[in-house]
């Protein structure tokens, strides 16, 4: 009982003691880097629509995202993306490029354990939950729409 009290007091003390970083510089960095990545995406999209005027909006966006995923995977491979991430934080995690980085980085990291047990098994250690949650929630949405459509 006394231990519990002491632990609570200690946790409270630690919380007050932890150095507070100023939020504004990191918020600003993630704002402009994130915004820049989106602008690059828009540029790529406009480029595709200009080169292939006949493709649909949907196809254009798919091509844009695939291009961004490619760029991010490449930057991860040459060891640049983690440095962008260190600087920008959320700015480079939230865009689709962050998703690409979270799949490529464990693949490269665990290459030393072989192709099957290293690259393939560890590929989704970070991004796995994203796909699981995304697909599961889309099924829920689909189910709700299906039930609604019955009436």
């Amino acid at each position: 009982m006394e231990d519990k009290k002491r632990n609570e007091a200690y946790n409270k003390y630690i919380k007050a003691k932890i150095p507070k970083t100023k939020p504004w510089p990191s918020l600003f960095n993630s704002f402009w880097v994130g915004g820049l990545i989106c602008v690059i995406g828009q540029g790529i999209n406009d480029f595709y629509l200009w080169v292939f005027p006949n493709i649909s909006q949907q196809t254009g966006w798919s091509l844009t995202l695939i291009t961004l995923i490619f760029i991010a995977a490449f930057l991860t491979g040459i060891g640049v993306y983690d440095q962008i991430g260190k600087f920008a934080g959320g700015g480079s995690i939230v865009p689709i490029t962050g998703f690409s980085n979270s799949i490529t980085s464990p693949s490269i990291e665990f290459k030393s354990e072989g192709i099957i047990y290293g690259i393939c098994v560890k590929m989704f250690t970070i991004a796995g939950p994203v796909i699981v949650f995304g697909v599961a929630s889309s099924m829920v949405v689909g189910l709700i729409y299906w039930i609604i459509s019955l009436f």
Partner: peptide
């Protein structure tokens, strides 16, 4: 780092502590 935390190439920030 790879045993306790994240892959080296992951673009995350380290907490201040």
């Amino acid at each position: 780092e790879r045993q306790y935390r994240f892959p080296l190439e992951l673009g995350n920030q380290r907490p201040p502590t």
